[in-house]
Amino acid sequence: MLQKKIPLAIVFIFGVISILQYFVPHPLSQAYYDTMLKWMIGVGSMAIFLALVSFIRHHQVRLKKKEHAPYSAVALLSFLFMTLVGFIGGMGPGSVFQKMFYYVQAPLQATMFSLLSYYMASASYRAFRAKSFEATLLLITAFIVMFSVTTFGNYVPGVPKALEWIMAVPNMASKRGIAIGVSLGSIATSLKIILGIERNWLGG
């Protein structure tokens, strides 16, 4: 029972203090906030160790499965290699660690990011199939927006104005509607957790 009561009490006390802290500019309040941030970093550092154990164990298990083995082997070898390189040669400018980061990891990440353009094309194709009234409306709107940002579209009378209106009125209105809902929802979620009504984060 105490296993749940103690975390709930901690969350309530620190939750209420943190809400009040926002309205108190006194240095003591700032000192509290800075201390909380340091604690977050401290807890995060400890969690990194647990996460690494999970990473190694996960891939270790997958090595035994044929379809996962090559990928897990690459993941584990890369992890071990980078760890050794970092410990032996350091991570400073010109080190092997940094070169591996710039010439291997960064291009790999860029490759994944560039895949987005292909995914976007296929997703757009699906979205713009004029199957219903809403889809047709979306297609027309998308056409106006895309056309107006081209050099040619910029010179067609009325098109830049239409873009301006679409972005400033329907687009902005819906974005603001979602933003208000999100803000109220996030405050309500925070209050539910602080008051101990929402306990699913403790496992239910």
């Binding site: 647990l50 990473f55 996960h58 990891q105 990440q109």
Partner: peptide, 15 residues
């Protein structure tokens, strides 16, 4: 415990 796992902290590595 292997069903909940830390993948990577890299955004596109995770993707």
């Amino acid at each position: 415990e292997n069903d909940v796992f830390f993948a990577t902290d890299s955004q596109f590595g995770y993707a």
